[in-house]
Amino acid sequence: AVSDRLIGRKGVVMEAISPQNSGLVKVDGETWRATSGTVLDVGEEVSVKAIEGVKLVVEKLE
């Protein structure tokens, strides 16, 4: 699937994400809805860990 190529890629949070609410991330110039187990603020760099349906699962870049 086209989304599989995104796993491991870096992105930037465009709309804040929390465990309760999905947000938006931009990866390779495309905007995706994303979820995370932690709070991520706009502008934070993330990496794509998995894909669930049409949402990316991301975590903060260390």
Rank of each mutant, 00 (worst) to 15 (best):
A1H: 07
V2M: 09
V2S: 12
S3Y: 03
S3F: 04
S3P: 09
S3W: 03
S3N: 13
D4M: 04
D4T: 09
D4S: 07
D4I: 08
R5L: 15
R5G: 14
R5A: 15
R5Y: 15
L6W: 05
I7D: 02
G8M: 03
R9F: 11
K10F: 11
K10N: 09
K10L: 10
K10H: 14
G11T: 02
G11K: 00
G11E: 00
V12P: 02
V12H: 10
V12C: 06
V12L: 13
V13A: 03
V13G: 00
V13F: 00
V13T: 05
E15D: 08
E15Q: 13
E15L: 08
A16E: 09
A16K: 15
I17W: 02
I17A: 02
I17P: 02
S18M: 07
P19A: 09
P19V: 08
P19H: 06
Q20M: 11
Q20I: 14
Q20F: 11
Q20D: 14
N21C: 15
N21P: 02
N21K: 12
S22D: 14
S22M: 09
S22F: 10
S22R: 04
S22W: 09
G23W: 03
G23I: 02
L24M: 12
L24W: 11
V25A: 08
V25S: 01
V25E: 00
K26A: 13
V27G: 01
V27A: 03
D28H: 06
G29Q: 12
G29K: 06
G29L: 09
G29H: 12
G29E: 10
E30M: 05
E30F: 04
E30W: 03
T31K: 13
T31E: 15
T31S: 13
T31M: 12
T31D: 15
W32A: 04
W32M: 05
W32T: 03
W32Y: 14
R33V: 15
R33K: 12
A34V: 02
A34N: 01
T35H: 06
T35R: 08
S36V: 01
S36M: 01
S36Y: 02
S36Q: 01
G37Q: 14
G37K: 13
T38W: 11
T38S: 12
T38Q: 13
T38R: 09
V39M: 15
V39G: 07
L40I: 12
D41K: 13
D41F: 12
D41S: 11
D41G: 14
V42C: 06
V42S: 06
V42K: 10
V42Q: 10
G43P: 05
E44D: 13
E44P: 00
E44V: 13
E45R: 11
E45Y: 11
E45T: 15
V46N: 00
V46H: 01
V46W: 00
V46L: 02
S47N: 13
V48F: 01
V48I: 11
K49C: 06
K49A: 08
K49N: 05
K49R: 13
A50M: 08
A50V: 03
I51G: 03
E52Q: 11
E52W: 07
G53W: 03
G53T: 04
G53L: 04
V54H: 06
V54Q: 12
V54K: 06
K55G: 14
K55R: 09
K55C: 07
L56W: 01
L56P: 01
L56K: 01
V57Y: 10
V57W: 11
V57A: 04
V58A: 02
V58Y: 00
V58P: 00
E59D: 12
E59W: 05
E59H: 08
K60T: 05
L61F: 11
L61T: 12
L61Y: 12
E62G: 08
E62V: 13
E62C: 07
E62R: 10
E62M: 08
